[in-house]
Design a protein around this nucleic acid. Structure first.
Length: 505
RNA sequence: GGGCCGUUAGCUCAGUCGGUAGAGCAGUUGGCUUUUAACCAAUUGGUCGAGCGUUCAAGUCGCUCACGGCCCA
């Protein structure tokens, strides 16, 4: 590389270096010359949230009568300098605490030559005593204060914050620094996942991890991502679901298992879809889909009560009641309910059902059977109207290749999907444990794949062999964690509940 | 994939009929010992997303593209 090119590269790299950054780099340079500019010898003994909880109610006099020494650290979000004294807002993981800094409490010259030159965004540490200002704000009256990490780039507007959606997603750390709502959302997400985990572990479920890279991507109908293993010289797929592995574990005698982890589907991005997303799947032997509907209902109600603290869940302009028993109806009942002009006899007749679909502008393929046509009608006319928590049951066997047939009506399976706010949140069913039936269903999927449906399933012979060893009667379910978190955090887009959503480029 | 909207200083945003680029915050300098978006005074800062076109003249009009947002498939 020639000197000229090196020069050009440097120019390129510093394109976004503005005067603000140059000034901060100068300050850092001065810090380096005065010793270690990045010390890591300070240990705090308390965080802001604890201080407010402990001392928020104490009066100014009480705090002064028995001095309480504390050591705090965090990011300087505001600095109000009034001559010889200043107020600083210090933000840490738990919240904010104000620092009251007086020139004459600090070493000679430190206040004017160091402290006043610090910038918003710098990471600082302070030691002092708990104090209340005349206006009643709990503060730390500072006796010692240090700069721990120089911030070289300016923060977004201190009042308006960061509103640019693109930067909020691409530079999530800025969003987290600036937006309390965003911090809350991700803290809640963590609590929801923990609560689900504890809920199942209390019921003796075993948490497991199964392959993300699979030879045959199974357990759902979706387009997979492909990858390649060099040493083995073989193509692999990123999983679209963990289902078939978890059921192998049930065959192995792990009768209650669950996994919370990422799935990957090679589809477009939208407010509801990210190519990688988090699902929980759980399987319970000697249970059926009715048991899982009961379990789902109590689990979600428990999240509302214990994590959110309210069974009335506000989502955008609506409110859903998680205290009332969740509605349950079959696919056909729901279609008839929302399409009063349609009769059951018409839905059961493939030609008449086709006519209804055509009237609804639903594109049909020749390969579609009656069950698939019914589901198309359901998705077009029912799904988005299922606002309050609702279980829809009796999905056609044709669209449920891994679910157990209903004993009375083998046209449908013992399956449900769960909806809130017009969105599918969960999918569960009594598992198909008849190995020969499973082999036939896979065969039907292979035919659909050959007919051009690239979302159809592969034939998983290894899984059929596992079933041939005998899987106990079992029920299993998957819940989309991202959509669940969207619901409970009132987030309009899946990107708002993913720390680092996929973006172009 | 289609439709609509957006992209201007580090951040948040104005910018009229096409006529020399504006504010607040942040920054810099000075003042100020109880502030809360502190305040007062002065001041620095621009590839107007990229490109092409129309025009004497384009942030502004037209076309193409990139990225984002919302809606639809």
């Amino acid at each position: 590389m020639s000197d000229k090119t090196t020069q050009d590269t440097k120019q390129q790299n510093s394109v976004d270096e503005n005067k603000l950054i140059v000034e901060r780099r100068e300050k850092l340079k001065a810090l380096r010359e005065n010793g270690n500019a990045f010390p890591n010898d300070f240990r705090r003994n308390v965080v802001a949230g604890e201080l407010h909880a402990e001392y928020g109610n104490k009066t100014k006099e009480e705090l002064e009568a028995t001095p309480i020494r504390v050591k705090v650290a965090g990011r300087m979000m505001a600095q109000r300098i009034m001559g010889k004294s200043s107020f600083v807002s210090l933000q840490d993981m738990s919240g904010s605490i104000q620092l009251y800094v007086q020139r004459d409490e600090l070493p000679e010259g430190f206040y004017n030559q160091q402290f006043k030159k610090w910038d918003l965004g710098d990471i600082i540490a302070a030691e002092g005593t708990m104090y209340k200002t005349n206006k009643g704000e709990l503060s730390v009256k500072v006796e010692d204060i240090r700069l721990l990490t120089k911030s070289l780039r300016p923060l977004p507007d201190k009042f308006k914050g960061l509103t640019d959606q693109e930067i909020r997603y691409r530079q999530r750390y800025l969003d987290l620094i600036m937006n309390e709502d965003s911090r809350k959302t991700f803290q809640l997400r963590s609590k929801i996942v923990s609560h689900i985990r504890e809920f199942l572990i209390k019921k003796d479920f075993l948490e497991v991890e199964t392959p993300m890279m699979q030879v045959i991507p199974g357990g759902a109908t979706a387009k997979p991502f492909t990858t390649y293993h060099n040493a083995l010289d073989m193509d692999l797929y990123l999983r679209i679901a963990p289902e078939l592995y978890l059921k192998r574990l049930v065959v192995g005698g792990f009768e209650k298992v669950f996994e919370i982890n990422r799935n990957f589907r090679n589809e477009g991005l939208s407010a509801r879809h990210n190519p990688e997303f988090t699902m929980i799947e759980f399987y319970e032997a000697y249970a059926d889909y009715n048991d899982l509907m009961d379990l789902t209902e109590s689990m979600l109600r428990s999240i509302a009560e214990n994590v959110i603290g309210n069974t009335k869940i506000k989502y955008q302009d609506d409110e859903y009641d998680f205290a009332k028993p969740f509605a349950r109806m079959t696919v056909k009942e729901s279609i008839l309910h929302f399409n009063p002009d349609v009769t059951e006899a018409e839905l059961d007749d493939i030609e008449k059902a086709k006519a209804i679909a055509t009237r609804l502008d639903i594109p049909l393929k020749n390969s579609y059977g009656l069950g698939k046509i019914q589901i198309e009608i359901f998705e077009k006319t029912v799904e988005h109207r299922l606002m309050n928590p609702t279980f829809i049951t009796a999905y056609p066997t044709e669209v449920s290749p891994l679910a157990r047939r209903n004993d009375d009506n083998p046209f449908v399976t013992d399956r449900f999907e769960f909806f809130v706010g017009g969105r599918e949140i969960a999918n569960g069913f009594s598992e198909l444990n008849d190995a020969e039936d499973q082999a036939e269903r896979f065969q039907a999927q292979v035919q659909e794949k050959e007919a051009g449906d690239d979302e159809a399933m592969f034939f998983d012979e290894d899984y059929v062999v596992a079933l041939e060893h005998g899987m106990p009667p079992t029920a299993g379910e998957g819940i989309g964690i991202d959509r669940l978190v969207m619901l409970f955090t009132d987030s309009p887009s899946i990107r708002d509940v993913l720390l680092f959503p996929h973006m172009r480029l």
